[in-house]
Amino acid sequence: MLSINDLRASVEGKEILKGINLEVKPGEVHAIMGPNGSGKSTLASVLAGREEYEVTGGSVTFNGKDILEIAPEERAAEGIFLAFQYPVEIPGVTTINFLKTAVNEIRKYRGESPLDAAQFLKMVREKAKLVSMNDSLLKRALNEGFSGGEKKRNEIFQMAVLEPKLAILDETDSGLDIDALRIVSEGVNSLRSPERATIVVTHYQRLLDYIVPDYVHVLYKGRIVKSGPKELALELEEKGYDWIKAEVEAVS
């Protein structure tokens, strides 16, 4: 589904990603862990198409399509979703209106007819239940004055509505208390299916208690330096990142 080959990216002339290789197949959940500044969020941003990152080498294909060549909105329409670490507040645009526009723009891209208001509302109400999202939040301006937990919940709610093939969760656990973490994780898990894949970018293991990964990758200094089964996350939790850093320094 997603194939990343020797991906290199810089921001303001500084190389952050120094050759990433990753294969993600439908149905899989991959966790990307690593110390601060290792390039985790950069990888998530590059995949979603954030413009301030310059791709300096390598390739990324999604279902056979070169996604580095297409705009962020086209990537979304192809089925890639990024749950933001810091969701943006947009005064004056209600969550519901925002999502309706998004859903219908994506449908247009796929050559489908737009949903009418009734169909859309029915669908939205069902998805809101998945993440215990209060109806009143839907009518408010997008993320404006939302608590940290409400913003993250809104991300997962949007993901549920847009039903992406590949969801990338960028530090979705940051700033969440244990109850919010549980609700958000349940939302993510309810969307898991054999056709869909998830990349969970996180600094801590605790999210992975709820969203259990198939593979864990450790990113350090812009490269994946270690991959393993879900137990790797527990080992990192126990021993920290220093032993990985030591291993890398020993080799290089």
Binding site: F81, E105, L162
Partner: peptide, 23 residues
Amino acid sequence: EALFYMRSRGISHSEALSLLMFA
């Protein structure tokens, strides 16, 4: 940042711009 957020949800650049300006 708001523009990128909207585009990452599938909203085209021009539509996102109109929504932001309308808001």
